[in-house]
Amino acid sequence: MAGLVANTDLLRRLLVGFVRDEVLKVGVRKVVLGLSGGIDSALVAFIAAEALGPENVHAICMPYKSSNPESEAHARLVASSCGICFSVVSITAMVDAYFELFPEADNMRRGNKMARERMTILFDHSALFRALVLGTSNKTELLLGYGTLYGDMASALNPIGDIYKSQVWQLSAAMGVPIEVIEKQPSADLWAGQTDEEELGFSYRQVDELLYRMVDQRMTRQELVAGGFDSEFVDAIYAKIQNSHFKRRLPVIAKVSNRTIDRDFRYARDWGK
């Protein structure tokens, strides 16, 4: 599919330029991001290092006791290969302290809590370093709602939110992200052996082909099915996008005045920058 094959030179320039421009114009020089050992945060680390210089990029690896030790090793590898600052903050003590109060909590609650715990650490370091928090959610995850609201979805700037996972792979290869990180199975790493594709029930490549046609090209259901996509798959993905839309919006405000924030009080975030 031509549309999913990115011109990586151009994409790299746009995204590196984005981080440089949007960070510097706020009046800061630094960024902080969570480095999971996976490909998305690795790519963002490479983009940020090129944009601001590696000394201005601080990556934090935030493992939980059940995280795969390979993840931290890969995070270290990524940090050392692009030369950025790196630290490790374990979230085990905080998360365990909380779930001692709610021992019955299921995996979803635990996973969300971990994602939000990491968010608070990143935003605390944002204040510590005078650095903006970079987001690491790609377009595939954002459209499917495969992320935690106010957790991994929270950031000041997201360089990769408009590129699909398939394009993340391409750009990562072009920018020199370590091959081990590119080739491993994507995983939220909430428990041993978990993989995204098993949990989602389809592969990223499959769903990217569909999302590109459905979202970017605005093909109708009829066109998608005629083009060879299974109708149940099309409907399931459409429903996922629809049902997760709340995660992509600000909280809904009850309108009572003449100028309600974001409805008829409208300003760009770069207002005055």
Binding site: L14, G17, F18, D21, E22, A268, R269, D270
Partner: peptide, 8 residues
């Protein structure tokens, strides 16, 4: 040139 709210 430049960016505004992520648009280049």
């Amino acid at each position: 040139v430049g960016y505004e709210d992520g648009v280049n």
